[in-house]
């Protein structure tokens, strides 16, 4: 007869991940957290589970299984059709009270950042924001959540000593997802739904944002210019480059002050923060006021004439060269290829 599978070896599942499937094939942070959660779970001798709420979520359930989830806690219900902070809080918090996980993680996505504070508050437990590292301290067994502080120049190691679960939102792109395994099997659990509150928030219109003003913070590619760009004419080339790469243009304070870009493009402490997949920063020295706004970028390419510029300290690729020359050649080459 049938062999017992590993999934049947029932055990506790004490590390939970919130399954944020919005924009699934682009937004990989949930998969990254499943991988990290699995590593944490094996240190704790437990399993990793993913909470998936919504309607018609089968596809996502299967993706999470393929990427390493041991347990799926799912509610497939018309009332949960669209993301809603209050509804999702009610369900997730009630399930935490049933299963009592030790750790509960979510990606620091727009929704994760909105949902998790609310769940943590309802459960009267601690939450750390936008973590860049997670580990179990070998000496004390504490779950250490590392989060950037003071514009990212310092790291704070945060613990939640007493309350459970220990909750954290995690910066996208920090951990690596496990490869897709079509052979994977997991345990699927449909816990009971609590009484659901009525929806009080209604999205009446939703359209792709075209206005440049606001999409900078959501852009996948950001090109930033600083004083070293040299002139307004050179700065205009940043827009060409951004256009070619489907990105947006940001500016440092000196570039804004020079009138090359509007205040709405200002990045940094007094401006916007961006978290693109790719940030190309040109003619910027790397002052803290500016770099605080770009620390969330996944890949940073910096172009600067001065090889000792601090910006190179946080660049994945540093190019020592003339901003204008590099920009012109890069645009020329992209025009040729695209």
């Amino acid at each position: 007869m049938l062999k017992r599978n590993r999934y049947m070896d029932r055990g506790t599942c004490l590390v939970w991940v919130f399954g944020d499937y919005a924009d699934y094939f682009q937004n990989r942070v949930t998969l990254q957290l499943i991988a990290k959660g699995k590593a944490l779970a094996s240190e704790l001798g437990t399993r990793v589970g993913v909470v998936v709420l919504g309607e018609d979520i089968g596809q996502y359930v299967m993706e999470y299984v393929a990427h390493g989830a041991d347990v799926i806690y799912a509610a497939d219900n018309n009332a949960l059709k669209d993301y809603d902070v209050e509804l999702f809080t009610a369900v997730a918090a009630s399930w935490v009270e049933i299963f009592r996980p030790e750790i509960f993680l979510a990606g620091a996505t727009a929704f994760g950042r909105e949902l998790f504070p609310r769940i943590a508050k309802r459960l009267r437990t601690g939450l750390s924001a936008d973590c860049v590292a997670l580990e179990i301290d070998r000496e004390t067994g504490a779950f250490v959540q590392t989060t950037p502080a003071f514009g990212g120049d310092l790291l704070a190691d945060v613990v939640t000593p007493v309350m459970r679960p220990q909750m954290a939102t995690v910066h996208p792109g920090i951990f690596r997802e496990l490869p897709h395994d079509p052979f994977a099997l997991a345990e699927l659990i449909h816990p009971p739904l609590p009484n659901l509150p009525e929806r009080k928030i209604e999205v009446v219109r939703r359209r792709k944002e075209k206005a440049r003003r606001a999409s900078l913070t959501d852009a996948g590619v950001v090109i930033v210019g600083g004083k070293g760009v040299g002139s307004r004419a050179n700065f205009d080339k940043l827009f060409q480059l951004a256009e070619l790469l489907g990105g947006e243009v940001g500016a440092t304070r000196p570039a804004v002050n020079a009138g090359w870009a509007g205040e709405e493009r200002l990045l940094g402490q007094t401006g916007k923060s961006v978290r693109p997949r790719l940030l190309i920063t040109i003619g910027t020295s790397g002052a803290l006021q500016y770099t605080a706004g770009i620390r969330g970028s996944e890949t940073v390419i910096a172009v600067n004439r001065d090889h000792s510029a601090p910006i190179f300290g946080l660049a994945d690729l540093g190019i020592v060269g003339d901003a204008d020359r590099i920009l012109s050649l890069l645009i020329e080459e992209l025009n040729r290829r695209l």
């Binding site: 359930v61 299967m62 993706e63 079509p182 994977a184 099997l185 659990i189 816990p191």
Partner: peptide, 17 residues
Amino acid sequence: MEGIRSGAVSAHHNYMI
């Protein structure tokens, strides 16, 4: 625990039943 339904799920193919 009452009201909790559980089973196995595959990454490759499942029946909705």
